[in-house]
């Protein structure tokens, strides 16, 4: 009987213990996969806001060219300005149409005249944003509205970091529980087969020979747990992709990038196999004393 056959024999003899071990691994990898997919979505959201202008000054309607040029000159005089882009009413309409191209009802009724012209400003020194905001919020004769993205990014960053930390803590707890469960189950299986191990040792089996089927068992639980965990998470991503993406529109929160998911699957298989091996190795070392 090859080690793999022996392992299969062990699994069949105690199917519920095997199921618990695989489920523990499955849960860990389901949470890991889900966390990574959510994290990737959050990174996309952050990136989206980070690449947006950091402050936008919407201008009052009917300003003449000279006033607009003066405003631009004045803005350029601030230290720490990276880029100032003037968005005319026509350009604003083009951007609006691009953002709502899937919803013709929203674009049909809108004309350039109802959209405000604006200055989109990005900075290299964040302190200048506050100055611009303070100075221009009082100029109500030329400025209609100011959108200060810094607040959004800061709050988004806080949320993202908090989500990451909580997710990481949950994964750490679940992975630790799975790991301990695996060690315990391998230990129980070894105890169940104590006589067989003792007899094999008396017949001349090396320590590694009797441990090998249990190590393989751990690897199998890790392997299948990681594959099923990933597949379940991927399936949920597939099912809820549309509704989640439409909620975050125009951001693609769940991007079904084949390379990303292949790398994730591969990394999880390696991690699962390694975790299964280490857990069973510790279990075997702890419980095989004869």
């Amino acid at each position: 009987m090859s080690p793999l056959q022996t392992t299969w024999h062990h699994i069949r003899r105690s199917p519920f213990q095997s199921l618990i071990a695989t489920t523990a691994m499955f849960l860990s990898f389901f949470f890991i996969s889900t966390f990574i997919i959510i994290n990737s979505g959050l990174s996309t959201v952050l990136k989206y806001f980070e690449t947006k202008p950091e402050i936008t000054l919407f201008l009052k309607d009917g300003l003449d060219t000279a006033t607009v040029e003066n405003l631009q000159k004045d803005l350029s005089s601030y230290q720490g300005i990276k880029e100032i882009t003037f968005i005319s009413k026509e350009k604003a309409l083009t951007i609006y149409k691009e953002q709502n191209k899937n919803n013709p009802l929203l674009t049909e009724m809108v004309t350039a005249s109802i959209l405000p012209a604006s200055f989109e400003i990005t900075v290299s020194e964040p302190e200048v944003l506050e100055k611009i905001y303070q100075n221009y919020s009082t100029k109500t004769n030329v400025i209609d509205e100011i959108i200060y993205q810094k607040d959004i990014i800061t709050s988004l960053l806080n949320w993202t970091n908090a989500t990451r930390q909580v997710g990481f803590a949950i994964i750490l707890i679940i992975a630790s529980i799975s790991f301990l469960t695996m060690i315990t189950i391998i230990g129980m299986k070894i105890t169940n087969r104590k006589d067989e191990i003792k007899i094999s040792r008396l017949l001349g089996a090396s320590s590694f020979y009797v441990k090998k089927p249990f190590l393989l068992e751990g690897i199998i639980y890790g392997l299948f747990g990681s594959i099923f965990g990933f597949l379940f998470s991927f399936l949920l991503a597939l099912i809820f992709q549309k509704s989640i993406n439409s909620f975050f529109q125009p951001i693609t929160f769940i991007d079904l990038n084949v390379n990303f998911y292949l790398i994730l699957l591969f990394a999880e298989i390696i991690t699962g196999t390694l975790l299964g091996f280490i857990a069973s190795w510790i279990g075997a070392k702890r419980y095989i004393k004869f």
Binding site: L202, L203, G204, A205, S206, S207
Partner: peptide, 14 residues
């Protein structure tokens, strides 16, 4: 050592 013990046991039928 352990290897000696295992090798010896493999020559003994019990």
């Amino acid at each position: 050592n352990k290897d000696d013990v295992n090798n010896t046991r493999r020559k003994i039928g019990v």
